[in-house]
Design a protein around this nucleic acid. Sequence first.
DNA 1: ATTGCTCAAAGG
Length: 501
Amino acid sequence: MAEKTAKQAPVAIRLTSSRATASRCTENQKKERQSSGGDGEMCFGDEWLDDWEDEAILHQAMDDLDQSLKSNSTSVSDSAKSFSPESDTTEKNSGEVSTTICSCSCEISSVTDSVSATEELNEKGVEVSAGKEIAKEGDCKENICQYCQRTIAKRTVSDVATNSSPTKKAKLDLEEETKKFTMDPLRQFKGKYLWVSDLTAQAWCERQLLYDCTGIEGRPVEILETEAMKVGTEMHLKRELEVHTIKQIAVKTKEDKWAIKFLNILSAVNQLLQGGGGGGASRCVVREMPIFGKPFESGAFVVGKIDEIRYNSRDQLEVVEFKTRTKSRTVPSAAQRKTHKLQVMLYKQLFDEAVCGLLKKETILETIGLDPDASVNDEIAAHALMMDLTLPKFGDYLNAMLECFQFLSKIDSLAVEYSSQDDKEPFAVHEHDFDPVWLKDTLDHYNAFWVGEREVEGVDVEEVWKCKYCNYKEACDWRQKMHEKCLSRKSANKVQMKMTK
DNA sequence: ATTGCTCAAAGG
Ligand code: SF4
């Protein structure tokens, strides 16, 4: 096992672009490097790019990792304290309030309300266009939230620009558009695409996910991050660093961000191709590979990261999802296994579609709104060059990424590996059969919510125990509804019992 | 183009 790890994990250094320390690595990793160096079997191109903005967090994570590797007795919670996606929360709290809705209650609740809000704003015209600055200070002038200001201002301006005296039809169009918008949680809360983790959260409880987006009765909520999640994140990062290095890149444009994803895919595929076929297969492990697409070519565009791809005993590709458990060696509930199953199946679907050429260039460019002619920043270009890729424009990165998939075969098997957060050891592996019909049905149902074709749903009656863990249990309208339904069912039963007597 | 659109997943 130790030997295998050494071979699999030749390098785990973290490069930071702007520091004098070109490379840092932990003591452990140095050892691993030395023991495996020079055997000529290492996968090359195992340096991955990252566009994290907060370098301090990365360094902290690295230091923590040093610490925890040096002495295994160091509790992970200590290091997890310093490494956590704090930047996320602080960002959300200070600047970007964009996904939360303020007390103006302009959300999806009522179509007519928001139409009248539009008209009100219409009269005020362009002045609301400064919405971003206003909202940055966190206040909601005239009971209008940042989100409304932005979107409605946009429409108002274009309406005024194209048609100085709006005809009845134009007005109707606006109403239609507003209606469509207010019934479109995807656009409203997520923007252009969903994360795979959004869909797994939806599989847990859709109502909860929506509360995460809207807050409670207009008051934004802080999305909780439990200790278990922090430790889970930490353990994932550790595993990622076992197989490749991370180089930080400063990015400005969307094209840069996506070019990085594409290059990381190219590295991953490269490694898979080198590791494939016969003897080398068992060695080759790829972690945190970006993946995206429009599953079944319907519904929302989805973006995610595959925990691990390796070769299985049949020498075929296997997707592995790591899950960590707080309570030592307890098998997760059926509800949890369902979200995990969804996750790995979705990864396979996205991966296979890319392999089969079903992931289309135009889909990516259009849904994300990327410019194929944009140039990519020098640092990224330099990295591409290092990988022997000469890619002048962003579109070339995209093409290269799509092409490299053609050399791969589909995912053969799906596994979820459970590890304990106590002893850090894996204790169970669940294999899942791919079930495209179930996957498509599930996604279609979820998608109907995102495009506003159906109302939000909470947990089933059999799963009300989930509410116990939920932050919204006091406020939740779904829980209330289910409660009433139960009561009325009970009384109906009573009536029936009386009648049968 | 005057004004944009996410690092994803962490676990229950
Ligand atoms: S209280 Fe229950 S139904 Fe409501 S959001 Fe929470 S888990 Fe979902």
